[in-house]
């Protein structure tokens, strides 16, 4: 990893990578969950719309 990026992080490199790794893992997980959750809700709304259940405001369209 360090060779790949061309930087030398010294004797405590593992701590630095672990810290950045934790941030990437948690935030990546959150973003993935937000994306998947959004897809699920949109699919549910689409399924309901197919059955003819619509919001009052969307009925005009």
């Amino acid at each position: 990893m360090e060779l790949l990026l061309g930087i030398d992080l010294g004797p405590h490199a593992s701590f630095i990578w672990a810290a950045y790794g934790a941030v990437v893992a948690v935030i990546g997980g959150l973003i993935a969950w937000l994306y998947i959750d959004g897809r699920i809700q949109q699919r549910k709304l689409a399924a309901l719309a197919e059955q003819g259940v619509r919001r009052r405001s969307a009925r005009r369209a």
Binding site: L30, I31, L34, D37, G38, Q41, L45, L48, V53, R54
Partner: peptide, 21 residues
Amino acid sequence: MHFKAMRNEILRRRVRALQLA
């Protein structure tokens, strides 16, 4: 992220309201 989460939550509430209806 907060905007996206709020959008999801609004959609979730719409889904629930429609299901109830």
